[in-house]
Amino acid sequence: MGTENKTITPKRESLFSKKNRKLLKDPLGDSNPITIQVLGICSALAITVQLQQAVIMSLSVLFVMIGGNVIVSLLRNLIPDRIRIIVQLVIIASLVIIVDEVLKAYQPDISEKLSVFVGLIITNCIIMGRLEAFALANKPGPSVFDAIGNGMGYAWVLLVVSIVREIFGSGAISLPGMGQVKFLPQDWFISSGGFYENNNLMILPPMALVVVGIIIWIQRSRNEALIED
């Protein structure tokens, strides 16, 4: 896991000081969890067929990350080093259970579609990775910023992949609470005498990988420093 250990000891600094802004901004770009650090891909790809699933998933991960980072950071001096992995797993698992129960209660059909992937937030390496690399060594304040930054970095990749896949795959966009909005006129489609047809390949799981591959390609050609040799 390519995570770097930042040790930041803020004295009294303003909410949006340079350090905090850096914590928020870096994971969005040059140390993005999915495209650069290679963390948390497992759940990222499987649920990007539709935008609404991706939105719900991102919010769930964001919640678990913030909760986990704050709790671990508060307990960081109490957790014995040797059993820290299991302590972290228990904290994350409890937060994920909360998310799962809330989703089952308020978004039952999306919870159905996400099936096992809500549970798999537990083993999402992003969360473990940030707990290990950041929350264990830093105060709760910066940990919250780190969690928000990484959660958002995870979220934007998810949202972009799912928007691309949904537009090309089903010719529609779906948001939680709005259902699926088809914005292409019905008579454009070949089935009703038009010229356009949805690309069903985009709905299939492998295309998520290709789309992420292309995002990585674009990101690395814009910033030569990220290129691997």
Partner: peptide
């Protein structure tokens, strides 16, 4: 820019 991670994703796809 595709070397390493990028091409691995696409091949996996």
């Amino acid at each position: 820019p595709l070397q390493g991670l990028g091409i691995t994703y696409i091949i996996t796809g």
